[in-house]
């Protein structure tokens, strides 16, 4: 499964990643971070294609995206 790591304390809730995600997997959390912003969170992560556009547009550098390497079949 692909993975998105969110550094919630960096997030300023600008929401640019929400628009960047083609699969609409990101939303603002109802929690507050240390700076008083509602940081983004990911849902339905199994849908994530690891396109990393969220990371590319994030001005804070608060996202990391990892792509699963599927074992090659038939060796």
């Amino acid at each position: 499964m692909n993975r998105v790591e969110i550094d919630g304390d960096r997030c300023k809730a600008c929401g640019l990643c929400i628009d960047a995600c083609n699969k609409h997997l990101l939303t603002l959390s109802s929690d507050l971070n240390a700076k008083g912003y509602h940081p983004i969170e990911i849902h339905d992560v199994e849908e994530c294609s690891a396109c990393a556009l969220c990371g590319v547009i994030c001005p804070e550098g608060s996202l990391a995206v990892y792509k699963e390497i599927k074992p090659k079949k038939g060796g």
């Binding site: 990391a64 792509k67 699963e68 074992p71």
Partner: peptide, 20 residues
């Protein structure tokens, strides 16, 4: 599970939070 980095914060940025 094997995985590769699709996107990661570069180490040439410090850990400081941007003031922007």
């Amino acid at each position: 599970m094997a995985e590769q980095v699709a996107f990661k914060r570069t180490s040439v940025l410090t850990d400081d939070y941007f003031h922007y």
